[in-house]
Amino acid sequence: MASSASRFDDGTFVGFARRHVFVTMFGVAVPLLVFACFIGYPIVYTIYLSFFEWNGMAPQKKFVGLANYAYLLHDKYFYIALVNNAKWLIVSLVFPVSLGFLIAYVMKARLVFAPSLLRTIVFFPVTMSLIAVGLMFLLILNPVFGAFDTLLRSVGLGFLVHEWFGDYRIALYTLAVISGWAFTGMPMIFYFAGLGDVPKETFDAARIEGAGHWRMIRSVALPQLRPVTAIIVMLTLFESLRAFDLIAVLTKGAPFGMTNVLGYLVYMESFWNSRFGYGAALSVVILVIAGSLAAVLLGKVLKGAFDV
């Protein structure tokens, strides 16, 4: 990727900076400064704050050492939220990601009529705010007036009717599936673009070997799409760690914190319970989880996907 400008470069940053003042200023210095203020400093400050007790108002923060972390280890709600995050991630990987792949494949293979129409329909919710999506399903899944339960009853599946947001055993899955509904379009377009990049000869060769669709998916498409899958898994992972909006608009963690996830627990502890130090400690845990998962993915699966 050497450009013509690089003929001046002697490899050191100072050398580069002296030759390319404009680029160094606005391409490196300004973004770094903005990053330092709005992303770097907040991360450092969060870590710092996690060693203090602070109600957000008092001028003095009280140093408590690792007390916030010690508390965290015994906090029932932390574990519930952690497990919920894992459940949420699994639902997200199973439902929107594999379905997104399936849709992309059948469209690419021209197995359906009007593939572009289907693509549009499935992609549209990606552009909707999760607040709107949440409110929409609040209406649809309403136990009295909701369309879904009405439909279940009318086809004789009335025994499946539930308090979708009230039953502590299923409320979290309801939320995760709704989020999956809104997210499916994303893996779909990634896989669709990825399938377009697979060389035609690869599929031709498999066809000559007499491969059916099942084998085609398993032995050709999926291995070829490994980098795409890695990116999608990464996206899904961070989406699930960010899960917030649906919970805020639909359940607020209720019933009994059973639908709480880490991303919402941080907000509740900080801004509702005014325990900013504990909120910061929870944030650090999220950062550690996100960071280590990203490191593992970037190091192993994604090798080459972000080559520069």
Binding site: M1, A2, S3, A5, S6, D9, G11, T12, F13, F16, H20, V23, G27, V28, P31, L32, F35, I39, Y41, P42, I43, Y45, T46, L49, M234, F238, L241, R242, F244, L262, G263, Y264, V266, Y267, S270, F271, F276, G279, A280, S283, V284, I286, L287, A290, A294, L298, F306, V308
Partner: peptide, 28 residues
């Protein structure tokens, strides 16, 4: 277009900003 020394690091920063869960930095 250019061979900025240390661009891997710049890239790393960009990805960090991209993946950072916003809830963790709300307080600061």
């Amino acid at each position: 277009r250019m061979n900025v020394p240390g661009r891997k690091w710049i890239f790393g920063l960009l990805l960090t900003g991209l993946m950072l869960p916003q809830q963790t930095v709300l307080i600061p």
